[in-house]
Design a protein around this nucleic acid. Structure first.
Lengths: 220, 220
DNA sequence: CACGCGACCGGGAAATTTTCCCGCTTGCGT
DNA sequence: ACGCAAGCGGGAAAATTTCCCGGTCGCGTG
């Protein structure tokens, strides 16, 4: 048998956060079959993910972005706030570059779309565990293109927090809903809402929703 | 030359309402080339359309639904309110059955999509002028299907007014915007808004927008 | 015809949200 | 150290939303 680069003592310890149990199970086996990767904990929410991170101190966290309760962005931010060396791979069905930007800005070290080939996830985990950044070539290319010649995403001026609240608004949540979700005052959320509408140059939540749908950020 | 069914004294007199001058021009020539049809007036808004109807008392009004100011629905309703014998052909780029239903409910005698073959418009005008109802076969079929086996459109319980305000809300207009457009009190619009959300079982304008987009009623 | 019913319109009053403006803290680059 | 932007939220006024009410109008039915 060929000697691998990862022996038993150097297995990559992974915490996986996703709200769908089937998805977790699927990827757990996928990663388990790969060499030198071990899923040491699963979590179905951002909060639980954060707790799992604290408890297990894994080498890497695989974080779904679309989560009930606090979003993946928020979870990433909390984890990074606790340990800025944390290695987090963002993992989402959204392929929009705005999402990628925001995830990286929040502190993720990589981004993989759910529609990617499964092997990509393994590759990404290994790269990030090794201390590198990992982006799917296709996504990296689009991102790079947008940075140079392409029209800048309208969400570029939005801070991470603003973008997060933008998404929740687009999904139909009220300011107070979002406040409780994010443990913020409803007033703060309302302030963000105004700020977002100014930056995006729209006048209503309906416009926000339309914009989000146009960019594939929320589904219709 | 073959003797036609329409002699000079029985030409069908048409008022055409559409906000795009080029569209009007195109269809004016199209109709003008057809036998026995004469466009006696054009209008670029619902208000102007209503005035043109009063002034010219045409045999038929071709009414675009998507109009600045008052919507085509509202214009239809006003015209029918003035003369319940008015023959109106609704004409819109929206192919959704909800639109068709609403237009017919408002008093239109027919519905033609803008993507239809041009000859269809001529055919529809002649049919309606002759006192018949005209629906494109394809649309009529979908409508009939939905009435029987198909899942009832969620908009079926919405009154014409409610549906109209639903559309405007989805497009991002505020309650007071809509109030001035429709010559209603902003409070009335707000009341409708609440009523609509109840009927549609949603909680926010963003949900309204998403729903409208899902059904192709407004474009993303 | 009277009657009921639902669509349509809007007022009043209370609750909530939104807006605008302010100040505070924190992290980051210079 | 310094400025600066992001993040957070209070206060007060303005606007909107909600809930409840009453009214008119047209339409189908007994």
């Amino acid at each position: 048998m060929i000697k691998t680069a990862f022996d038993e003592s150097r297995r990559i310890r992974v915490v996986m956060v996703d709200d769908h149990a089937v998805v977790r199970a699927g990827y757990r086996t996928l990663l388990g079959n790969a060499n030198g990767i071990e899923v040491v904990a699963e979590a179905d929410s951002g909060e639980a993910g954060f707790r799992a991170f604290v408890e297990h101190e894994p080498d890497i966290v695989i974080m779904d972005i679309s989560l009930p309760g606090i979003s993946g962005f928020e979870a990433i931010r909390r984890i990074v706030a606790r340990n800025s060396a944390a290695k987090i791979l963002a993992f989402s069905m959204h392929e929009d570059t705005a999402f990628v930007e925001q995830a990286l800005q929040a502190g993720a070290r990589g981004y993989v779309g759910k529609s990617s080939a499964p092997i990509i996830l393994v590759e990404a985990v290994q790269q990030i565990a090794a201390g590198n950044i990992y982006l799917e070539p296709e996504i990296a290319q689009r991102l790079a293109f947008q940075k140079t010649r392409g029209p800048t995403s309208p969400f570029a001026n939005l801070s991470t927090r603003e973008f997060e609240i933008f998404c929740l608004l687009a999904e139909g949540f009220s300011a107070s809903d979002i406040g409780s979700r994010l443990s913020l005052s409803a007033k703060t959320v309302a302030n963000y809402s105004t700020q977002i509408k100014n930056k995006l140059e729209v006048n209503s939540v309906a416009d926000i929703a339309r914009m989000a749908i146009r960019h594939g950020i929320v589904e219709p």
